[in-house]
């Protein structure tokens, strides 16, 4: 029964990768990466039981906690970049 779920998760992962490759916008890629992260947590949890070593859930726990940081960093990066660009544009307008 764990096999069925893991296959479903793998298919979902493949679809998420297609979205990440296709883009088109950066936000689509972030969405895909985020989704992929959640699916990895689920896959690892299922596979840990499939292999009969449930003590390896630590890995899933690590992803559940840390995956968030990457997404936040990316968003912060874009926010500050577009703000800086606006700042540059505002300075240009002022100098004209």
């Amino acid at each position: 029964m764990f096999i069925t779920v893991s296959i479903a998760i793998l298919v979902t992962m493949a679809l998420a990768i297609i979205r990440a490759l296709r883009g088109p916008s950066i936000y689509d890629r972030i969405l895909a990466v985020n989704m992929f992260g959640t699916k990895t947590v689920l896959l690892v949890s299922v596979v840990a039981f499939l292999f009969g070593r449930p003590d390896f859930l630590d890995l899933a726990l690590a992803y559940a906690l840390i995956n968030f940081i990457g997404v936040l960093a990316v968003l912060e990066f874009f926010q500050s970049r577009s703000l800086r660009r606006e700042l540059g544009a505002a300075q240009q307008r002022d100098s004209l």
């Binding site: 972030i30 985020n34 959640t38 947590v41 949890s45 449930p54 899933a60 968030f68 936040l72 968003l75």
Partner: peptide
């Protein structure tokens, strides 16, 4: 293992909507 799964579930339920929100907002 169940306790760990519960923790994973809790963290996922906290972080996943938050990152969706932050993404949509941005």
């Amino acid at each position: 293992a169940t306790m760990k799964l519960l923790a994973i579930l809790l963290f996922l339920l906290l972080t996943s909507p938050t990152s969706s929100y932050a993404l949509a907002n941005a």
